[in-house]
Design a binder for these strands. Structure first.
Length: 541
RNA sequence: GUCCCCGUCGUCUAGUGGUUAGGACACCGCCCUUUCACGGCGGCAACACGGGUUCGAUUCCCGUCGGGGAUGCCA
């Protein structure tokens, strides 16, 4: 008696749908408005705007793998005029957390991947958190139960573990659920029910034949049904498993392309069987290659940063991250410029050009892409990026440090960035690079100091140089780089030295480091009084 | 173990049944120069291996090896 199953289910707390009707038929994406004039494409040929989704589970930060998945879905939607949906897969009550949810949204926002529909954005296919869609899964479970396509499994973790151990002891290999509860008779079920024994629901899967699909990225993929086991689709806690929720939601949300990591390949045949059981037409699937660590092993913290938040902390800017991630598995082709702003990538992106082989994450190349992005920004954009880094240090332009034409921190920083040119290639290095313009208490390279400054020769040269600058220039007035250069070179000649003999100690005395922008520009932006003071201080140190 | 996928310079990749196998990162030289970057020029460096198919394979097929993934009431 099939009705028996239903009766038992109706007593369940979440049997009564509390939500308004949702599209349960084959939810086709909204078709473009029909043209009223000109050529009307045949309906079968009309381009259907894709609906894709990124469906993270809120169990951690946004990892580079997830970010790449999100990015490619987003790129596909944006390049095709489609819709990008954000769906939260929080069916694991143990691991899901609000912090993770927030972290993921933050990561998405940072990358600039905006979604058209999602938990906070709303949309016609919500709710977009699986924990708020339980009635939907229940309704479809009942349908499957009614048709005897699923069955109850009363095995608990201990039962399963015991049977697995037994198989191993006998020298066998446990190949997944053994179908133990597949054919329980009504009496047995009734007995378990009577003692309120918890149960999960499993899908009956065929033992023969094969399940296959044409992958958007890897062509045909096929699995023998023989290797597919009756996996759980609804857990004993009443929550659906990923397998089931994913299928129900993708269908109900009208998802046309499921683009996900290659680690999901083995889930696909099982999900296809769920589509079949529900009598639904499955979407297209595309499995993107994994991102590996530099050593081609699974990417882990051991390799360095793995979450987008960490990269942000390391001074990577969002568009560089997007650019680099896009290059992992996709390429603009030929010898085209790899450094692209997000908008350009959207314009060139194509699923057909997505690779099928795994890619190793290369931190060096990311750094390079980042530097190129920073370099290509407009002065204003660079300033917007750099100012917070300076403010974060608590630095600002002191009153007595003002120089002509740059009398507030922002204007001064603008001059410094112009001076830095291509040396400004990383957000994190910036404070070290230009801290000495804002404070006397800046980073000092002790080794350079010992070599160029703290020697009798170094000290005496610095002292002479300080004197020459004071005498030759009106330091109360702003002086340009050329003026400083003139004095330095003249003095060198007078002393029979190479200009470098004065420049090197001066660089370390002024900046604390052996590398900097052009020293005469440094003097100009430091200003005469500060320049001389630092030279004198160094000479007497 | 079993199943699935992948395999072009160290890395990311372009590419083709006949190419001097292209670009980028890294690396090495040189130039520029006041250091360091930037930039410019040049260099090193690859079709995993073995069988086929073919007039001809890096390209198509099979095997081997290597790497990755899956094998959960995680997603």
């Amino acid at each position: 008696m099939r009705g028996w199953w239903i009766r038992s289910n109706l007593g369940n707390p979440w049997a009564r749908p509390s939500r308004p009707a949702v599209p349960t038929s084959n939810a086709e994406p909204r078709a473009p408005a029909p043209a009223t004039t000109g050529k009307v494409p045949h309906p079968m040929n009309a381009p259907v705007p894709p609906r894709v989704r990124f469906a993270p589970s809120p169990t951690g930060h946004l990892h580079v793998g997830g970010a790449r998945t999100a990015l490619f879905n987003w790129l596909y939607a944006r390049s095709q005029g489609g819709t990008f949906v954000l769906r939260i897969e929080d069916t694991d009550q143990e691991r899901s957390s609000d912090e993770s949810y927030a972290a993921i949204l933050e990561g998405m926002n940072w990358l600039g991947l905006d979604w058209d529909e999602g938990p906070d954005a709303g949309g016609d296919f919500g709710p977009y958190r699986q924990s708020e869609r339980l009635d939907l899964y229940r309704a479809h479970l009942i349908k499957l139960a009614t048709e005897d396509k699923v069955y109850r499994c009363f095995c608990n973790a201990d039962d399963l573990a015991a049977r697995e151990a037994a198989v191993r002891e006998a020298g066998g290999v446990w190949e997944g659920y053994d179908g133990h509860c597949r054919h329980l008779d009504a009496d047995a079920i009734a007995a378990f029910e009577a003692e309120s024994r918890p149960h999960a629901w499993r899908l009956r899967t065929p033992d023969e034949g094969s399940t296959f699909w044409y992958d958007v990225i890897v062509d045909k993929r096929e699995f023998q049904n023989e290797v597919l086991v009756d996996r759980v689709i609804v857990k004993a806690d009443g929550f659906p498993t990923y397998q089931f929720a994913c299928v129900v939601d993708d269908h109900l949300m009208g998802i046309t392309h499921v683009l996900r990591g290659d680690d999901h390949v083995s889930n696909t045949p099982f999900q296809l069987l769920i589509y079949q059981a529900l009598d639904w037409k499955p979407p297209k699937f595309g499995h993107m290659p994994m991102i590996l660590g530099p050593d081609k092993k699974r990417l882990s913290k051991r390799h360095g940063a793995t979450s987008v938040a960490e990269f942000a902390d390391q001074g990577i800017i969002p568009e560089a991250m997007v650019n680099y991630l896009a290059l992992l598995g996709w390429s603009p082709g030929g010898s085209a410029d790899e450094v692209m702003r997000t908008k350009a990538i959207v314009g060139k992106f194509s699923l057909k050009k997505v690779n099928s082989s795994p890619a190793a994450f290369d931190y060096d190349k990311l750094a390079h892409i980042n530097a190129m992005h920073i370099k290509r920004l407009t002065p204003e954009e660079r300033l917007d990026l750099a100012l917070p880094m300076i403010e974060k240090q608590g630095w600002g332009l002191a009153d007595d440090w003002r120089i002509h034409g740059a009398d507030d921190t922002r204007a001064y920083l603008a001059r410094l960035l112009a001076m830095l040119g291509g040396r400004f290639s990383s957000l994190v290095n910036l404070p070290e690079q230009i801290g000495f313009f804002f404070t006397d208490d800046h980073f000092k390279d002790q080794e350079a100091w010992d070599e160029h400054v703290a020697t009798d020769e170094g000290r005496s040269r610095l002292k002479v140089l300080a004197g020459a600058l004071s005498e030759s220039l009106d330091l109360d007035a702003p002086q340009e780089a050329e003026a400083f250069e003139g004095v330095v070179r003249e003095l060198a000649e007078k002393l029979g030295l190479k200009a470098g003999d004065l420049i090197h100690p001066a660089r370390v005395a002024l900046s604390g480091q052996s590398r900097s922008a052009g020293i005469f520009e440094v003097m100009e932006l430091l200003g005469g009084p500060r320049t001389v003071r630092r030279l004198e201080t160094a000479a007497s140190a």
